Amino acid sequence: MDLPSSPGVSTQCRRMKGILSIVGDKWTVMIVMVLRRQPRRFNELKRTIGGISQQMLTRTLKALERDGMVSRTVHPTLPPQVEYALTPLGRSLSEPVLKLGEWAAEHLDEVEGNRIRYDVA
């Protein structure tokens, strides 16, 4: 999206910065990709993603819930079970996230090779 050259551009950039900081986060990307398939419980998410701390998963899920991308459903069982799912807004985010993941997978070897060449030089 091209931003017009006007005084309102800095306001628009500030507003977008908050959204991009969450949707561009690596944990957000992984959570969205896992939830894209089906709703999951907290520990399922943690196991599937791997490497994410309980605190970071909690923080990221709360941020996604706040932004309306993830829904949190508490099932009345003993103990209560909490399930997370993508909302329609979250599903719309999953499409570009999927494309980004495909791009990363396609160019992984090339990027790693470039890094090695750069680090040796």
Rank of each mutant, 00 (worst) to 15 (best):
V9D: 07
T11R: 11
T11W: 06
Q12G: 02
C13T: 15
R15T: 10
R15P: 00
K17A: 14
K17E: 14
G18L: 15
S21H: 05
V23E: 00
V23Y: 00
G24S: 03
V29C: 05
M30G: 02
I31K: 13
M33N: 12
M33S: 10
V34A: 15
L35C: 02
L35E: 01
R37M: 12
Q38V: 05
P39K: 15
P39E: 14
R40F: 08
R41Y: 06
E44P: 09
K46Q: 11
R47I: 03
T48F: 05
G51W: 07
G51C: 04
I52D: 09
S53C: 12
S53Y: 10
S53W: 08
Q54C: 06
Q55K: 15
Q55S: 13
M56H: 11
M56L: 09
M56V: 12
L57T: 09
T58Q: 11
T60Q: 07
L61Q: 06
L61V: 05
L61R: 05
K62M: 03
K62C: 01
A63Q: 06
A63H: 01
L64D: 03
E65N: 12
V70E: 02
S71F: 03
R72V: 09
H75Q: 15
T77C: 03
V82S: 08
V82K: 13
V82R: 14
E83N: 05
E83Y: 04
E83T: 12
Y84K: 01
A85V: 03
A85L: 08
L86A: 08
T87S: 10
P88W: 05
P88Q: 08
L89H: 02
G90I: 00
G90N: 00
R91I: 10
S92L: 06
E95D: 04
E95W: 03
E95Q: 03
L98R: 09
K99P: 00
K99F: 01
L100P: 00
G101Q: 06
E102T: 15
W103M: 13
A104F: 01
A104P: 00
E106D: 10
H107K: 14
H107M: 07
E112M: 13
E112L: 15
E112W: 05
G113P: 01
I116H: 09
I116R: 12
R117M: 06
